[in-house]
């Protein structure tokens, strides 16, 4: 099986406070993400799972003073190598955030097309086609095809989140990162997103951070359990949720803490 992401001894902190340096958010994480699978990252609040995700596409460093150590290989190429432009890395990685973040000043159409246009795509016919393909992938096309010129914020929360998935998919990313994508949604909309991810995994590699253990168990092929910045256990989801090796993993999934 092909590995899309290779995380090597990754550490991260929110500097430059002296405490931050001695209390890194991530400590020496190593794991690999397999192509066309869903990899779930679980763990209690503040365990560093979101930071882990944001290190993959170099979004962590957007925060002032943040530091990263170690490396991530995206399809064999270093993300943190010398002279690597974070902007170009982010174009190869899709990201969906906790709260839906459609751009309020852009129409539904432009919300999806914006990534393509950032990549320099200008031909209207190609844009039109890609927008439709992406919206079909997230099963939103039929709901919005007659109102593409309305603002993205005119949609419901669940629709907005699917729009954000479509926006991330439009540029055909090598990996799709989702940071608790359903935590701000109602159960119906969450269900739709999960269904969608199951469908997308046939052609995309997905990493999802979730605090919802059931969601991880339902959706993912592999699960990593984070605790206080460390990767405690990383294994097949079925194994993590039935016979975890580490006692702390067992305590967490049986609800003894977190």
């Amino acid at each position: 099986m092909k590995s899309v992401l290779e995380v090597k001894n990754l550490s991260a902190s929110f500097g430059p406070h002296p405490q931050a340096a001695s209390h890194p958010v991530l400590k020496g994480i190593s794991l690999s993400v397999t192509a066309e699978q869903i990899t779930a990252i679980i763990g209690p609040s503040g365990c560093g799972k979101s930071t882990f995700l944001r290190c993959i596409n170099r979004m962590h460093e957007v925060v002032h003073g943040a530091t990263v150590d170690g490396d991530v290989l995206l399809n064999g190429k270093s993300v943190y190598g010398k002279g690597v432009d974070p902007v170009l890395i982010r174009r190869r990685v899709g990201m969906v955030f906790q709260k839906p973040t459609p751009f309020p000043t852009m129409s539904i159409y432009h919300n999806v097309a914006v990534g393509l246009r950032l990549n320099g795509l200008k031909k209207k016919a190609v844009l039109d086609e890609q927008v439709e393909v992406s919206l079909r992938k997230v099963v939103l096309w039929d709901e919005v095809k007659d109102r593409l010129s309305q603002p993205g914020t005119s949609l419901s929360g669940g629709q907005q989140q699917r729009l954000c998935v479509a926006r991330a998919l439009a540029v055909n990313p090598e990996v799709l990162l989702l940071d608790e994508p359903t935590s701000a949604l109602d159960p119906m909309s969450s269900g739709k997103i999960e269904e969608l991810l199951r469908e997308l995994k046939k052609s995309y590699t997905i990493v999802i951070v979730t605090h919802n253990m059931q969601q991880a168990a339902r959706l993912s092929d592999m699960t990593g359990f984070f605790l206080m910045g460390e990767l405690i256990e990383f294994d097949a989801t079925s194994k993590i949720f039935t016979t975890p090796t580490d006692a702390r993993t067992e305590d967490y999934i049986t609800g003894r803490f977190g």
């Binding site: 902007v87 174009r91 899709g94 955030f97």
Partner: peptide, 21 residues
């Protein structure tokens, strides 16, 4: 900040972030 991060995650430069969002 979420709006800024959303456009940056799509591969926008800082100028594009200012200009588009």
């Amino acid at each position: 900040q979420t709006q800024r991060e959303a456009i940056l995650s799509l591969g926008a430069t800082q100028w594009e972030m200012v200009y588009k969002v």
